[in-house]
Computed example of a mutant assay.
Amino acid sequence: MRGYQVLHDPTAVVDLPLGREPHELLVRAVLAVTDPERLAPDDWAQIALQLTGHARAVAQDVERLTGLLPRYDPRRVLAEDVLRQARQRLDAPMQGTLRCAQGRAHTVRELYARLDRLRTPRPASRR
């Protein structure tokens, strides 16, 4: 079994594993659902909660890497925009709906895409 980090909630509501692969699988599964009746509202709420916690953890990584870039670097500007949009979505009240879970799944996907771009070395500019 692989080791993993756990996001601990001091209110003891939930402990979330932070591994990327299981969350990417969850994101794909949630985004593939077309029938909101496939799960009960409590199940959708639990999925949204897990995706919210994971999105916040990934956002911290994006924010940390963004802070290392020069102020006017285009990658920084784009990352700050993604972070702003993610915060707005994650601060919205959670609901036990497919739509809410899918919104959180899109946020996780966008944050990982930005994180990957920040980790990729910038190509040398041509002169």
Results as ranks from 00 to 15, higher is better:
6 V>M: 13
65 L>H: 09
65 L>D: 11
49 L>Q: 11
105 A>T: 10
31 L>Q: 08
68 L>T: 05
72 Y>E: 07
60 Q>I: 03
72 Y>G: 04
113 A>H: 11
74 P>W: 03
38 R>H: 06
76 R>Y: 10
122 R>Y: 00
18 L>M: 13
6 V>R: 11
37 E>L: 05
109 R>Q: 15
62 V>L: 05
34 T>S: 14
81 D>E: 15
25 L>H: 03
107 T>C: 05
29 A>S: 07
45 A>E: 10
99 R>V: 13
88 Q>A: 09
2 R>S: 14
95 Q>W: 06
74 P>Y: 07
69 L>R: 10
70 P>W: 08
71 R>D: 04
51 L>Q: 03
64 R>D: 05
98 L>E: 10
112 Y>R: 08
38 R>L: 15
76 R>W: 07
96 G>K: 03
86 A>Q: 06
98 L>V: 04
105 A>G: 09
35 D>R: 14
109 R>V: 02
62 V>A: 11
127 R>N: 06
81 D>M: 12
100 C>F: 00
58 V>W: 01
65 L>M: 06
22 P>D: 01
112 Y>I: 01
32 A>V: 07
48 A>C: 12
112 Y>M: 05
39 L>W: 07
28 R>Y: 00
116 D>C: 08
37 E>P: 00
22 P>H: 11
83 L>A: 07
95 Q>S: 15
123 P>D: 02
63 E>R: 12
92 A>I: 00
97 T>G: 04
22 P>G: 11
9 D>R: 11
22 P>R: 12
75 R>A: 11
37 E>T: 13
115 L>G: 01
4 Y>E: 06
66 T>W: 01
97 T>D: 08
18 L>Q: 08
113 A>R: 15
31 L>E: 09
87 R>P: 01
83 L>Y: 07
80 E>T: 07
67 G>L: 12
6 V>N: 05
51 L>W: 04
25 L>V: 09
102 Q>A: 03
51 L>A: 06
42 D>S: 13
63 E>W: 04
55 A>C: 05
7 L>E: 09
40 A>C: 08
87 R>Q: 14
29 A>E: 11
11 T>F: 15
51 L>G: 03
39 L>D: 00
110 E>S: 14
98 L>R: 09
60 Q>C: 10
37 E>N: 10
50 Q>F: 00
126 R>F: 09
36 P>D: 08
96 G>I: 01
56 R>T: 12
60 Q>S: 14
40 A>P: 02
61 D>A: 01
71 R>C: 02
61 D>K: 05
68 L>C: 08
108 V>Y: 05
36 P>C: 11
12 A>I: 02
97 T>Y: 03
119 R>V: 03
89 R>Y: 00
3 G>R: 13
62 V>I: 02
112 Y>S: 00
32 A>T: 09
51 L>R: 06
6 V>D: 06
12 A>T: 15
21 E>V: 14
33 V>T: 14
127 R>C: 08
70 P>G: 03
122 R>M: 01
15 D>E: 13
28 R>Q: 12
30 V>Y: 01
47 I>R: 02
